[in-house]
Amino acid sequence: MEPDDMLQTVDSVSFDRLVLEDSGRMAVEFMSYGCGYCRTIEPIVQRVASMIAAEETVLRVNIAADPELAKRYEITGTPTFVMFLNGSEVGRTEGPAPTQSAVIDAITRPFMS
């Protein structure tokens, strides 16, 4: 984990425990460090994760390190945000625009309905 990193990285070992067995709101960013779009959006995701930390947890899956998780959730590109509530997927967004409003909308809207 990078210093000042608001996103905990989860892998195939910890994913079930931290995401599927948790009862809270979770947004999981499937990303890759070598992805330019992920790099562009990273500071915004960090800021948003800090803003919504009280209501929702934002986690990260590095698909280069954990391709099996990417296959399991049918990830076709990065960044893809998959939202979970009580361990079940409730929505997903692929490649939101790198703006604070777009990222907030992407990772909170599935919980509004």
């Binding site: 890759s32 992805c35 330019g36 779009y37 992920c38 562009t40 959006i41 698909i63 391709p67 990417a70 296959k71 399991r72 959730y73 049918e74 990830i75 076709t76 590109g77 990065t78 960044p79 893809t80 997927e89 692929e94 490649g95 939101p96 625009a97 790198p98």
Partner: peptide
């Protein structure tokens, strides 16, 4: 067309369609 400008499709070889429950 790509679904979004800020999205990087994975190489075709890595796209395997399986149910989310594995």
């Amino acid at each position: 067309a790509q679904p979004a400008l800020h999205f990087r499709p994975l190489p075709a070889t890595t796209q395997v369609r399986v149910p989310p429950n594995g």
